[in-house]
Design a protein around this nucleic acid. Structure first.
Lengths: 217, 217
DNA sequence: GCTCCTTTACCGACCAGTCGGTACAATTGT
DNA sequence: ACAATTGTACCGACTGGTCGGTAAAGGAGC
């Protein structure tokens, strides 16, 4: 892929992380990149096309750095969970906390009025939750190995939902972190997630019952 | 306050819930309200002024319906927590799940480039977390009453952070619900919150230790 | 000479906000 | 009592400016 195209994507991802998709104008991008409009439309067919490429590019980074390097590392699942949370906090410590999560920002801004973006972002969340789900299953399996082999009592669908909840918790942490402009919100959330996973694990180990939704629906 | 002004605010809050602040144009509002521009600028000095009024109006509703009627009800704290979660799910079941949380939407969209909006929305979250904090303290107090009077081991600052985390969890639930366009995401999150609060309560009761951030920072 | 890459000039649509003017009720002067 | 004045609610054409997007032509390398 062309260097210039990559550069445009990089610059756009920074701008869009700061100001959102709608509020990032082509002129902002052209100015930052030091190029003309014609050049932009040589590489991209529309702003929408650019947005799509930016999401893909950010996901590539996210996928490589967090999902593969950290979550697929050969360590035990407990360590990988902690590594993930540490990686996230470290990542946001490097950037300004006021930026929040690119995917979460885009999801809230665009889910309602662009189906393509919505699905693409949903896939990001699903990929992430999928990795966490796998990790939770591993944790459960290693816990069983030490005691008993009765894995069947753990509802796989429940684990899937639980892993989605963890993603949602992190996104909520990003949201409040951005609004408070305070990294501590996110740090607290990672602590709560660890606590929750431990409590969840323990409950399954001891009672085998589902956490479900205790209040009636 | 003038009826017309109230009507403009109501219509605007619906439009902004759907499309966000930036993407809601004055023409959209004027068309829906069936009024001219002159009338709008008779009641509001700017779009920013309107946005501010809409946030206030939504908070009034939220404050009255959830924070006062539900969270300040004379029931025991456990019931009030469940009532809150039920109320939230019921509220979003009535609307389309694709709208998400108005405050969360606005917070992500505007926190970065409008300090006034940012602080106003932060206050909304703080009010909410404050009520939850109070509720958690009550829960702890009633648990102590049955067993022992040693309340001091519960760090008040930790409870404050924990209640903020609950708000963040809900906002994360709203975010993913909006992206997935599926109410179930939110329902799962309310279940997880109940589970978490119970686990948190139990841990404090049994060990008295803090949940903190177990991984090193 | 042909194909990329790039620039610049330009388009119509739309944006928030302004302005001159209208309709009509309330208030005031006599 | 009635006319003159003032104030309030409201309209829609218009402003300057920005938006995403297009078109045509210059220049570089093969």
């Amino acid at each position: 892929m062309s260097t210039k195209r990559r550069e445009i994507i990089k610059i756009s991802s920074l701008l869009m992380s700061d100001k959102g998709y709608i509020d990032t104008s082509l002129n902002d991008i052209l100015e930052q990149a030091g190029i003309g409009k014609g050049q932009f439309y040589h590489y991209f067919s529309s702003k929408h096309d650019l947005g799509s490429a930016v999401i893909d590019d950010c996901f590539d980074f996210f996928n490589k750095k967090l999902l593969e390097e950290v979550l697929d590392s050969p360590k035990d699942p407990e360590s990988r969970l902690e590594d993930m949370l540490d990686w996230i906090v470290a990542f946001h410590r490097r950037r300004t906390p006021g930026r929040g999560c690119f995917f979460g920002n885009m999801a809230l801004e665009l889910s309602a009025h662009d189906e393509l973006f919505r699905v693409r972002l949903k896939n990001v969340f699903e990929s992430w939750a999928g990795k966490i789900e796998k990790l939770l299953h591993e944790m459960a399996a290693s816990a069983d190995a030490g005691q008993r082999a009765d894995v069947s009592r753990r509802d796989p669908d429940e684990v899937k939902k639980f892993s989605r909840n963890i993603v949602a918790m992190l996104e909520g942490g990003f949201l409040l972190m951005k609004n408070y402009q305070d990294l501590e919100i996110l740090e607290e959330m990672t602590g709560t997630i660890l606590f929750l996973v431990n409590a969840y694990k323990r409950k399954n180990d001891i009672t085998g019952e589902k956490h479900g939704t205790p209040h009636s629906n």
